[in-house]
Design a protein around this nucleic acid. Structure first.
Lengths: 148, 148
DNA sequence: TCTTGACTTAGCGTTAACTCTAAGGTCTAT
DNA sequence: ATAGACCTTAGAGTTAACGCTAAGTCAAGA
């Protein structure tokens, strides 16, 4: 099967503008054209899935482009591509750690507001927080968010 | 103890510019001034920690500002604030789900490149992927990323 | 044939979140 | 009392990632 840009956009939950933007930035190699019009084939979707993965895990467009360029150079760049993927993998692990850390804070806030609403005032929740050692959050440091 | 804007910036791993920007946007209520100069007290840090949490879990500045404004109105807004926190909590859970989903893709790529590098070519890894059912990834759909 | 609708490119506009510059005030030590 | 290292504001500039408009092309149907 083959698909138009709008169909692909719809399937991926983005706009055709965005897809054209990705194309302009060189993120869509190997997309065929008929009469100048982009025609997406099934093979393109496996790359679109990877693109989506990298994008949604926070990799900037320019770095994805770099990955595309490496892939174009074939087997000679296997190690470089591997390291790029490893780096992103670690990145995602760090992000998950960070989010789990912040979940504790949000869970505390959840408890805090439930307590406050129950007793009708925030002051009461603050009082409860002081006396209840178990309810709160321990303040270990946040996972390092110094990624460039 | 009290701290200058640069000290606080350093402690939070951001620039003084950013802190002033947050202040201008109304995200730093109750920060005292001496001779027009911001002076951060220990009490300010508990809010800075919450600010950091909301920001680093992806809440836009304007929504954080809304939260600040609600807090200013006291007990009358407890329920609204609770719901805002609940929403963000759910948001973070969704983000974690998404990241775990994409981890599977990255793990597959990791395996793929290791295989390719071992055997010296990408073609070999593609071949291995076809024959090895267990190594790959099952393509269930990604967790819904349609958050506005 | 002529309209409809989906596609094309070029390029300007938008938004969020900073980031920096310019011009100036204040405190401390020499 | 002057240099240096802080701080202040207003406001302009930057970056990423789009979003949109204008003007034009092309294929199919009434």
């Amino acid at each position: 099967m083959s698909y138009s840009i709008s169909q692909v956009a719809e399937m991926m939950g983005i706009t055709p503008y965005t897809l054209r933007y990705y194309d302009k930035e060189g993120l869509l190699p190997n997309v065929k054209r008929i009469n100048g019009i982009r025609v997406f084939e099934d093979e393109d979707f496996s790359w679109l899935r990877v693109l989506n993965c990298l994008k949604n895990t926070g990799m900037p467009i320019k770095k994805i482009k770099k990955y595309v360029d490496l892939a174009k150079d074939g087997d000679a760049t296997l190690k470089e591509r591997y390291e790029l993927i490893r780096e992103q993998r670690q990145n995602v692990l760090d992000q998950i750690d960070q989010l789990n850390y912040y979940m504790k804070e949000l869970d505390y806030k959840d408890w805090y507001y439930r307590t406050a609403i129950e007793s009708g005032s925030e002051a009461a929740a603050q009082e409860a927080a002081k006396h209840c050692k178990g309810c709160g959050l321990e303040l270990d440091k946040a996972p390092d968010e110094s990624e460039k």
